[in-house]
Design a protein around this nucleic acid. Structure first.
Length: 260
DNA sequence: ATGGTCGTTTAACGA
């Protein structure tokens, strides 16, 4: 089963590039972030005609996540538990059943957190603690899971072309990396890192200042696997080349192959 | 130090 995460930066803007990538990469599951659309406005028919089940958790103008799946999706849950007052659409879960196991899919768009320090940074750190609690609950239930999305976290210096320019940024501050490490320390596996330990792999290049042409990128889109899911991992990759196409997102897809 | 670019929505704001 091929599972990909892709921050599309607006479904309207990606209405051609997204189906094109789907028909080439043919993921069984695509976890999408920043659909920037309410559920009713998401063009689900385009993807249903391509054979995908479509589940969205959207809001107007900002944020919004979705799951596309060639296999049926069950037990869909929208929103990250732990704060009834949080109305930002950043999290969706569903179960997909493989040949041997059921796998819980957790799609997330973690808050950017800039400017830091400040209320947006506090929201990011609190959100990460809620995510850790959710991961801990799934582990306690012994449900194999993939937690995938735009984490807005550069885990280590080798995940940035110019780490020193990110030191004060919410994506790379010590508090952010500490919160990410606490999540990882539950026993999760960074799927891409586990297969590609060498530095210099990125999933995001800013639209500004020729970041793509200079390869000034960062790796902030991750698929974290529970121990049982990690045992089933067979491959991982980044579809880097689509960043150089017409009208690209500033992120590219990151994917895994998992023998569920 | 500033602006550099997109997307959404149409004047800023978020990233």
């Amino acid at each position: 089963m091929k599972i990909a995460t892709f921050n599309i930066n607006g479904i309207k803007a990606r209405i051609e590039a997204l189906p094109e990538w789907l028909s080439e990469a043919r993921p069984d599951v695509a976890l999408l972030q920043e659909i920037k659309s309410v559920d009713e406005a998401f063009p689900r028919e385009i993807f249903e005609e391509m054979g995908y089940a479509v589940e969205t958790h959207g809001q107007k103008s900002f944020n919004g996540v979705a799951i596309l799946s060639r296999l049926p999706l069950e037990d869909i849950e929208r929103g990250l538990p732990g704060d009834e007052t949080d109305d930002q659409a950043r999290y969706i879960e569903a179960t997909v059943v493989g040949e041997r196991d059921a796998l819980r899919l957790c799609g997330l768009y973690l808050p950017n957190g800039n400017p830091a320090p400040g209320p947006k940074f506090d929201y990011k750190l609190a959100w990460m603690e809620r995510l850790r609690t959710r991961a801990n609950d799934l582990l306690a239930q012994e449900i194999p899971f993939v937690m995938a999305g735009d984490y807005n976290i550069i885990p280590q210096a080798e995940d940035a072309a110019q780490p020193d320019s990110w030191r004060e940024d919410a994506l790379f501050r010590l508090e952010s990396r500490g919160a990410f490490r606490r999540l990882m320390n539950l026993g999760l596996t960074d799927a891409f890192r586990s297969r590609h330990p060498e530095p210099g792999h990125y999933s995001f290049w800013d639209y500004q200042a020729g970041a793509w042409n200079r390869n000034n990128g960062i790796r902030i889109d991750h698929l974290l696997l529970s121990p049982r899911a990690a045992d089933m991992l067979t491959d991982a990759g980044i579809d880097k080349e689509i960043r150089g196409r017409e009208k690209p997102s500033d992120h590219v897809p990151v994917w895994i192959e998992i023998d569920v």
